[in-house]
């Protein structure tokens, strides 16, 4: 399994182990109840201190559910989330609240990530009120410092969110996350709504925060080219499972899973001479869980066994940490043995 690749004695900063969460679909009007579908189905990985771990997947892959389940909002059905060795799913709500300042989240939508009727100062001071209520006189200074750290001017403090540009709002959201001194930030599509000119600077800022403050990031995005810029290691998700994972260079340089390949080929590169392929059929969003591989219905390299055999985790030869869940590689290995 993926998480066993760590051989260091101390536990990794964040360890996610066989996380599952399913949602009940609403009963239909005419009794055509659908069974609950698994948004997350046994997801495991770990993030080391100061590491940027990228999670990439299309809509419906479960990546946002993953972000929320890690924060226990909502709590997962099964599996553990361990932060510095401590199992969050076992904590009561009070202990969990205390544990949270180590684990922060930043969201995509700059429009709704800040409370619309509260000033930037009020928003920034809120985590401090929660975690360091005694330090109240220092709040203005701390907020100013946090804004500086994300490259913003302190004169923004008395403003309301709607008076800021979307890039500024995302920076404030990041400032709010770092102000309590977290060891890891879950960044859920934080640059997706930004223009490229602003996005690039936001990505620089994230790399800088990692470098200078040693903050680890779980960086979630649908955009492979963004992930490729910042992530040390990546996991590709498809319908609630990690289908491929490994160092970013290995996954993007030698993609193994047909889905990863299709994703990479479908990225429109600005260079018109970079090949581009639109071969993958659109997802029909069939929630029915077939016994075999969940990518089988769209896979260009599907063969008979894929329909009824679920692929297991296979380690690839190019890199010891490069894993894939695909029968193509299992059979290849069996044949060679």
């Amino acid at each position: 399994m993926n998480q066993k690749s760590h051989t260091r004695p101390e536990p990794p900063l964040l360890e996610v182990c066989k996380l599952s969460r399913s949602f009940k679909t609403r009963p239909g009007w005419f009794g055509n109840d659908e069974p609950g579908f698994a948004a997350l189905d046994g997801v495991s990985f770990s993030v080391a201190e100061g590491e940027i771990f990228g999670i990439v997947g299309e809509s419906g892959s479960g990546k946002s559910t993953l972000a929320r389940c890690i924060l226990q909002l909502p709590r997962p059905d099964h599996g553990q989330v361990r932060l510095e060795g401590r199992d969050l799913s076992g904590l009561g709500s009070r202990q969990l609240r205390q544990a949270r300042h180590k684990l922060q989240i930043v969201f995509q939508d700059s429009g709704s990530s800040l409370s619309p009727r509260r000033t930037i100062f009020q928003s920034l001071a809120e985590p401090l009120e929660q975690f360091e209520p005694g330090a109240r006189p220092e709040f203005p200074q701390r907020c100013r410092l946090a804004l500086e750290q994300v490259g913003l001017d302190a004169e923004l403090l008395p403003r309301l969110p709607h008076q800021l540009s979307s890039g500024q709002k995302q920076r404030v959201a990041l400032a709010r996350a770092i102000i309590a001194g977290p060891s890891i930030i879950v960044a859920d599509e934080v640059v997706s709504s930004l223009d490229v000119s602003v996005q690039a600077r936001m990505l620089e800022l994230i790399s800088e925060l990692r470098r200078e403050k040693g903050i680890a990031f779980l960086f979630i995005s649908h955009d492979l080219s963004v992930i490729a810029q910042v992530a040390d290691r990546v996991a590709v998700m498809y319908r609630g499972r990690i289908v491929e994972s490994g160092p970013a260079k290995a996954v993007f340089g030698k993609p193994a899973h047909p889905y990863t390949r299709a994703l990479l080929e479908a990225i429109p590169d600005p260079d018109p001479d970079v090949p581009f392929n639109a071969s993958l059929a659109p997802d029909i969003q069939n929630r029915q869980q077939a016994p075999g591989c969940r990518f089988a219905t769209r896979c260009p390299r599907v063969f008979r066994a894929c329909l009824d055999t679920a692929p297991g985790d296979t380690r690839l030869e190019d890199h010891p940490e490069h894993h894939v869940e695909c029968l193509l590689y299992e059979t290849a290995r069996e044949n060679s043995q």
Binding site: L73, R97, R100, L103, I105, D109, S112, S115, F131, A180
Partner: peptide
């Protein structure tokens, strides 16, 4: 909305 979930993530009651 995300600001409400962020507030929870901070641990507000």
């Amino acid at each position: 909305q995300e600001f409400v979930i962020s507030a929870r993530a901070i641990g507000l009651p």
